[in-house]
Design a protein around this nucleic acid. Sequence first.
DNA 1: CGCATAACATTATGCGCTTAACCAAATTGT
DNA 2: ACAATTTGGTTAAGCGCATAATGTTATGCG
Lengths: 162, 162
Amino acid sequence: MDFARADALNQAIRLLSLRHRARAAALLTPLGLHPGQEVLLLELARSGPMIQAQLSGALGCEPPSVTLMASKLEASGHIRRSPAPTDRRATLVELTDSGRELADQVRRAWRTLAEETVVGLGEETVASLPEILGTLAENAGAGRRATGANATTRRPRRTGRG
Amino acid sequence: MDFARADALNQAIRLLSLRHRARAAALLTPLGLHPGQEVLLLELARSGPMIQAQLSGALGCEPPSVTLMASKLEASGHIRRSPAPTDRRATLVELTDSGRELADQVRRAWRTLAEETVVGLGEETVASLPEILGTLAENAGAGRRATGANATTRRPRRTGRG
DNA sequence: CGCATAACATTATGCGCTTAACCAAATTGT
DNA sequence: ACAATTTGGTTAAGCGCATAATGTTATGCG
C-alpha cells in the first residue's frame, strides 16, 4: 500500500475515534454519564450480571478500567457490586433498577449516535460496516492476548520479598 | 435503525479506536514517540511549515492539544517554533533535520499499521474505506464549528474586572 | 498436603485530549 | 482613532484508558 492510502486510512480512523467519542460524550452528558460507562451498562443490560473479568473481556478494555467505570457507576447508584458466590476473589456486577432505566435511555442515545454517524451512506454500505470495522479492530488488536498464538509472555510477577 | 445494528456499529467503532491507537503506540514507541505526535510530524512533512492554528485545523484536535504535542516535539528536538513574521500572536512550526528523518520512519510505521489493519479485506473494500470512514467522522463531528451553520456561539469572555 | 503458579481485583502513575479561563495581538465597527 | 470583538496561544483542571506493582484467592503439581 502506498503512503497516501495508508495515511488517509490512519487519519480517518483517528478522526473517527475523536469525533465519535466526542459525539457520544455530548449525547451521554444529559444522562449524567461520561463516555466509557455506557458500554458497561449496555453489556449488563444485554447479558445480565457478570464478574468484572468477564466485563473486561466483553468491553475490550483492561481490568483497571473496569474497576474505575464500575466504581463510578456504583457511586451513582446504577450498578451494584457483591462478592461472587463461587469465587471469593471475584466481584459480581449487576444493574440496579435505576441502572436498568438508565440503560434504556442509553440505548436510545446509542441509536441516535449510530444513525447520525451513517448519514449519507448507502444501506448496503451501512449493513456491511459492523463486519468491516470488526475486522479492522481485530487486525489492529492482533499481537494481543493470543487468539491462538503464544500466550506464554507472562512476567514472573517480581513478588516483593521484604 | 434497530438497536442491535446501532450497538454493533458503535461498539465496533469504539473497539477500533482503542485497538488502532494501541497498535500505533506499539509501533511508535521504538521511535520514541507517543501516539498523537506522529500526525503532527506527518502534517509538517506533507505541507511544510505552518502556524499552530493551521495544525489544529489539519489534525482535527483542539489548540491546547497542539500546544502540548508541539512542546514535547520541540523538547525532543524534532520541530522548531518561531514567532510568525506576519502575525505576532502566531507561532510558526517547522521540522528540524532530526524531525525530517523521524518523519520518514513514521511514514514507514504508518504504512505498516495501515497494512496490518486491513488484512483480510478485499481490495475494493480497502479502496473505499478512507471515504467511508471520512464520512463517518464528518457525521460524528457535525454540530461542531460550523460547516456553514451557526458559528455565533462565542461566550462574552467574562473579562475579569478586578 | 504444601508449595508454586495463575487469575481477579485494586491502587498508583502516566499520557492524550478536552473544556474553561486567561493574556496578547489583530480586526472591525462607528 | 478608539472601543469592542475576534483570533492565536498558553495554562490549569478533569476524564478515560493504559501499564506496573501489589494483595488476595484458586488451582495444579510434587
